[in-house]
Design a protein around this nucleic acid. Structure first.
Lengths: 250, 250
DNA sequence: CGAACACTTGACAGCCCTCAACGTGAGTGG
DNA sequence: CCACTCACGTTGAGGGCTGTCAAGTGTTCG
């Protein structure tokens, strides 16, 4: 497993990128500008800032704890897992980042990344130098506002799983969350693949891997969910959402 | 208990405020400018933006879930509790905000506050209109950077208690956290008052109130902590920090 | 002084973690 | 093509931590 330190990763421009005035539709920043009446010059400025990174292969790291913080990035394809390792050597999964979502925001406070980021499958990214996008944000109110919102949204998201929810509620919230986030990017909300291992899910939900297995099995036995290896299908969305409701909406 | 909706609260300038070029030392924004070589004109701009609010009395709300988001605020004196109420009527404490800390950042994403904020004792605030400070941030790179950092810091903080820590570890981390935050503002790190009820602590740490009582009692019995009603004294900082270590530092 | 509230203390049960063993699928080399 | 290996996932038994329920004590405020 090679170790590609994210800020120093080899960069190459991909052929399937949009032209100078159009971002790829899954880009988390596309809405930032297009929807807010930004002029063409400004848009081009932002576009010139993007560095396309990838493909990064499963198991390769984008950055590690302590690497100098220089950039944030939007996931274009694949799944990125962020995690920390405590002094006892135990891994704590902080989150999974699907296409269209941004990683690295928690590095802004401090000069280094506070966590590790690893690709779970083949990942493509759009990288934004943070000093450069900060300068641009000062000129573009829409971009500044968008960055503030991205940051603010993560604060709320991090607090989601902090409650003392049951294993069933956590798992339901996890499944509905993935489903909604995939749907927002145009993927099927009812049938999708869990790109992460059971161990990672357990670690993220603060459960034992055995508990994850048992809950998924029970969901399947009760007809709420279809499970076959890492492929899942939402069969009774209403019931799963009912379980997830207290977690997702306070 | 009156209900002072934060954005519409009566405002008055306090006599003990700094002059036009000096913020009160506990203000979370003072570092933003003074430390980064900002020119006097810019500093005055920021200072003109501040609205001093208070005193707000214990039990009064600064804002409630759904109130229109218009401003963030730095706590100057007292303690603010933020919380949400789920559909079952159960309260979930999101955090306690001590002097020098900022509230309202999680309202930036969305047009309304996502939580309630209530004063636990007599509270004084510095209020910053968010639209106005955004505009100013576009002119002042140091201020923009400071705002980004405040937001980023909260993302990490929210993730702290998300782990599956034991009751002892949670309580130790809570005590050390309070101690460090008070020390950073010049208060005693070894002897301080818990301004919140046991129920609030329990709710914040995702424990039962009974468990909070038992853990505090055991800490006291083992000579780590002095407890007398809401007054606490750190007697064996090394041991409490050892307990808190896995929670505070990953 | 009395009532309401905060806090403490004790008994008990339940959820989930731990430990252990087994099953399964993908990749590898012969 | 097949056996092997290893990581991943599943299944079962048992125990500990902490929540729930209940009752009692102390404090504050009207």
């Amino acid at each position: 497993m090679s170790d590609l330190t994210f800020p120093r990763i080899d960069e190459r421009v991909l052929a399937d990128d949009g032209d100078a005035l159009n971002f790829c539709s899954t880009c988390a920043f596309s809405q930032a500008c297009l929807a807010e009446g930004m002029d063409k010059g400004s848009l081009q400025d932002l576009h010139m800032l993007v560095q396309h990174v990838g493909p990064v292969h499963a198991g390769d790291h984008l950055f590690r704890t302590g690497d100098p913080f220089e950039a944030i990035a939007a996931v274009r394809a694949g799944t990125v897992k962020t995690y920390v390792v405590d002094r006892n050597g135990r891994e704590h999964v902080l989150g999974f980042h699907l296409p269209g979502e941004v990683i690295g925001l928690d590095g802004i406070d401090g000069d280094t990344y506070p966590c590790n980021a690893v690709a779970l499958d083949t990942v493509m990214l759009c990288r934004f130098s943070f000093p450069k996008i900060s300068v641009l944000a000062a000129r573009l109110p829409g971009l500044q506002r968008h960055l503030f919102r991205l940051l603010s949204r993560d604060i709320g998201r991090a607090a989601l799983l902090a409650g003392d929810w049951s294993a069933d509620e956590r798992m339901a919230a996890f499944l509905i969350g993935i489903s909604q986030r995939l749907a927002a990017r145009g993927f099927s909300p009812d049938r999708f693949q869990l790109t992460m291992a059971r161990t990672d899910i357990a670690n993220y939900l603060r459960l034992a891997p055995e508990t994850v297995s048992r809950v998924l099995k029970r969901f399947q036995a009760e007809g709420m969910l279809g499970v076959e290896r890492r492929e899942v299908e939402i069969l009774d969305r209403a019931r799963i959402e009912a379980l997830a409701a207290p977690v997702l909406r306070h």
